[in-house]
Design a protein around this nucleic acid. Sequence first.
DNA 1: TCACAAATTTTTTTT
DNA 2: AAATTTGTGA
Length: 769
Amino acid sequence: MKSFETLSRSLNPSQREAMETLSGPLLILAGAGSGKTRVLTYRTANLIAQGLANPEEILAVTFTNKAAREMEGRIAALLREIGIPVHGRLWVSTFHSICARILREHIHLLDYQPFFGIYDSSDQLSMIKRVMTALGIDEKTHPAKGFQARINAAKTEALSPDDVKDRRHVMDEVSHKVYSRYEGEMKRANSLDFGDLLLKTYLLFKDYPAVLESYQSKFKFLMVDEYQDTNRIQYLLVQTLAAKHRNLCVVGDEDQSIYSWRGADITNILSFERDFPDAKVVKLEQNYRSTKTIIRAATKVIKNNTQRKDKTLFTENDDGDPIVAREESNEYDEARYVVREIESLMNEGDFDYEDFAVFYRTNAQSRVLEEQFRVRGIPYKIVGGMKFYERMEIKDVIAYMKLVLNPADDVAFKRVINVPTRGIGKATVDRIEEIAAAKGAGMVESAAWAVDHRELNPAATRKTREFLLLLQGLREKARALTLTEFYHAILDDTSYVRRLKDEDNPDADGRIENLEEFDNAIAKFEEERGEEGTLQSFLEEMALVQDADDVEEGQKTVTMMTLHISKGLEYPVVFIVGMEESLFPSGRAADDGDPFAMEEERRLCYVGMTRAEKKLTLTYARARKVWGADQMNPPSRFLKEMPSECVRFETSMSRPRFMRAAYAAGGGKAGYSKSGTSGGDAFGGMPNYEDFGDGPFDDPSDDALSDAFDGAPTGGDFKKGMKVRHPSYGAGTVFQTEGSGPDLKVSIVFGDNTVKKFVAKYARLERIT
DNA sequence: TCACAAATTTTTTTT
DNA sequence: AAATTTGTGA
């Protein structure tokens, strides 16, 4: 056993300073790869070792469950290593999990039932649609997703319907109406959405000082990781909880703030010193993770941002290999290239599968990669993405569970009332819903009433009664059986699996497999939690812990994920695919009204690059299918921002085969010779960026290749919200599009509120960026 | 009421 | 290209 002293000697002076600053407010500005987790781990161990706190008096908040698990594991391991006996468990979790835990105990004070359900985004959307129907709002003119976004935004700002009422700039009248009604319906359904978990906890603290006080006293020490990505409500929660002891340690890096679209407010970290004038600030600037080359390139890229403190990351690591920027013809070749590279590095024997990671901007990009990994028999796992529990059959079963636990859950009720089909159609459901609305009651209750009062036709009455009896039976079983047994009861009583087998749907086998996998997951959960493994806690975990399926034990695999999920992780070899304008940076960042949207994309690039320890490869494709249509976009501007001495450009594109493709896509008049990459030598350096133009849409020159790329389908592509200029009407905004390709018609609202419809191909519309 | 066909929309990013 | 919503006829 080593002593804590010996171990902590390995920390550098700043790290040590952070570790030794235990009381009072502390801001740790931790650059990428600067050993942040290590510092937090040591600091926590130090708190316990010094006898300042018991584990259960420390609250550590992380951004993802993955990070929480990792940190908890590392702290436990360290404490074991230095031989500190630990009684009690640390509270290491996400804001949402902590809040769910707190609410489970106190939510009765807010007049909810303790068995409240949690609505994920799709449940939330169903509820919003339901509210819209009730209010007679047309989805065509008012997309439900818009209300969802506004409601969630209000909640992260801690604004109730009443609060937004007089703030028309925050929410228009219709949205306010929807929000109010939505809140009412959620309350009646005894359910909380993600935003509610935080907001209701905050309100609980506000309305019940005694409850707040108990938590303030309990948590003597607070740590918040990824502080740059906290939003308003999270900020308020932190301030509130820390108010008593003021032992608040926040850690973050403004260059890694990538969640502003979720309300993350970078000023929280930038103004920490204003909130706590006596705060100690420690900067961790030495990177231990990556090669000099990678650090140099990443630093150069991030320097293009204005929204940052000028901090300098440095490393004493080796120069390492150059970053490779690889051009391929399309996303399939791109995927094949990645797979080939992994195979060849594996053959050299320096790496193992688990050393590789592939990052992409959008989840949709994983499909092609996955295909190629399968073809070549390389083990892989995808983190995030289409989550297991989002699959139809899993959601169905979960809906049954939710409904059994919380009969007021109308979204769950509507989901399962005719699943598997039992002859209860839309008419019946609508009728029940009508009754429910009239009575201000839940649908289960209303359905029972309708059956008793013969409000439905005989056939519907009979079927509905049967369904209600089924639910009743399940409710009793839930009480008497274990979780696993209860799960089986659901499948049996609803004949779910049997019905799947009967219908000759080609997906049926996969679905049944998923249900079996779910069975295992439930069993495992039960085993792990023991007494605590209740139906409520299981559903809570299902809703909040989305990456539950990445625990493929022992298997060494390549990991794939979005750039967002990659934050906080590190891998010896990293590939970032799809380095193209419109994809990464996202097309929305370029023409969004927010001038800082591009900076956030750049931070995302910075995050991705700094995950790599030894080797970093960036790939881009000349053409890529987007929504089933070919799109050609120039290489990402971020590639251009990297110092050329750090990057080696490679291409597979000097063959004539592609020239013809580019030629064809360009509409027949362009040639490819201009870029002059004939022959196989050195690829003519990298493809000349000038040939692509600076961005996807700017300044279409006469350049032949530029035409070939910029004039492709992308050029005539107008989307909702886009700002455009018409030669005679002036500037306006696209608010509707119909048709596609040459038939695309766009409706545009001009400054004076007039609306004109154009055939995009003929109208001389110009995009304004 | 339901199965199937047709039309329409979807892609940022996550708790 | 895939998923979801809407329409249609039995």
